[in-house]
């Protein structure tokens, strides 16, 4: 009787799970194996007969000294990820604290969050036009202050930072949201006591807010850095294939173009796997730092 019921429950569980398990088999497990396999071949993605096993050749090409993958592309990737996180995190740290002390907190949070629910195609294009050297908003401000207009996206010296700035701008809202949640967990009594003692805002922040917010801060930093390392839609919308030259090209975009513009599926898959390991190692390193810093919950 008991045994029968147990079996029935197992059968039920697996029949409810079957669509999910089938999905993961087809769109996750087979693809991972397939990717690794493709990365050892020379293949344009047509039929399997044209697939040629080349061993480690694709990896050697990527790491060879003529390859642009490590420099400038991976360097750009880190600049883009790090710069974007720095902008959005510092802004969000200030904003979340200020609005937590203000009226209409929800309204402010919504305004900062708007880019996060907007398609990157819209954000990239609107900023593309705002960066326009002749009639864009930003150069309008710069020239009205008496400076010379800047060729933000066509000058290889400025293009990467210009796109990184937009990525930072986009990311503020999500970071504010998470930090706000962290701030809500800090009891108000602490601030009241500090105020009675005569501590100013800056002192309250460094002595109460920052230490208690540390777990949230680390979480925001990790997740947005990982997000930045894999992101390439904004670059694609604003700079097509990462131009001028390779000055704005990032790892995932190069992978995409190798596969779908040039038909080098082997090289592209090898790039995807390298990038995956880079991200994996960074995630593990950050998790380790978490633990060392006494944050167990993530």
């Amino acid at each position: 009787m008991r045994r029968f019921k147990f079996k029935r429950e197992t059968l039920l569980a697996y029949s409810f799970l079957s669509p999910v398990l089938l999905f993961y088999l087809i769109f996750l497990m087979i693809p991972v194996v397939f990717s690794v396999l493709i990365s050892f071949t020379d293949w344009g993605g047509f039929d399997f007969a044209s697939m040629k096993w080349v061993g480690l050749k694709n990896y050697r090409t990527i790491f060879s000294s003529q390859s642009s993958f490590l420099n400038p592309i991976m360097t750009n990737t880190f600049v883009f990820a790090f710069g974007g996180v720095a902008i959005s995190f510092i802004a969000a740290l200030i904003i979340s604290y200020l609005i937590s002390r203000m009226r209409y907190e929800g309204l402010w949070r919504t305004l900062f969050f708007m880019p996060a629910v907007t398609t990157v195609v819209a954000i990239g294009n609107v900023w593309y036009y705002m960066y326009n050297p002749t009639n864009g908003l930003i150069n309008g401000i710069i020239t009205s202050l008496g400076f010379r207009s800047i060729n933000f996206l066509d000058d290889p010296n400025h293009a990467l930072l210009s796109i990184t700035a937009v990525s930072g701008w986009m990311g503020i809202g999500s970071a504010v949201l998470l930090l706000s949640a962290g701030l809500k967990g800090i009891p108000n009594d602490y601030y009241e006591a500090a105020e009675l003692e005569g501590a100013g805002h800056l002192r309250q922040y460094t002595k109460i807010t920052f230490p208690l917010l540390k777990p949230t801060i680390l979480f925001v930093l990790i997740t947005s850095f990982i997000g930045g390392l894999q992101s390439f839609t904004l670059t694609m919308v604003m700079a097509k294939s990462g131009g001028p030259g390779n000055s704005t090209n990032v790892g995932a975009l190069e992978m995409y173009n190798q596969a779908f513009s040039f038909g080098n599926w082997g090289v592209a898959s090898a790039m995807a796997i390298i990038l995956f390991f880079v991200i994996f190692i960074i995630t593990m390193a950050q998790l380790l730092i978490f633990r060392k810093g006494g944050v167990e919950s993530y």
């Binding site: 147990f6 429950e9 197992t10 569980a13 697996y14 799970l17 999910v20 398990l21 993961y24 087809i26 769109f27 996750l28 087979i30 693809p31 991972v32 397939f34 990717s35 493709i38 993605g45 990982i226 894999q230 390439f232 995932a252 992978m255 995409y256 596969a259 779908f260 599926w265 592209a268 898959s269 995807a272 796997i273 990038l275 995956f276 991200i279 994996f280 995630t283």
Partner: peptide, 30 residues
């Protein structure tokens, strides 16, 4: 309650760790 529950749950959690770009090429083909 059923055998394999923990494994499946851990597996589903781990799927969130895989970045999307890893799947564009194979999933396009599939």
């Amino acid at each position: 309650r059923f055998p394999g529950k923990q494994v499946i749950f851990s597996f589903i959690l781990s799927t969130m760790m895989f970045p999307a770009f890893l799947f564009f090429i194979p999933n396009y083909f599939i």
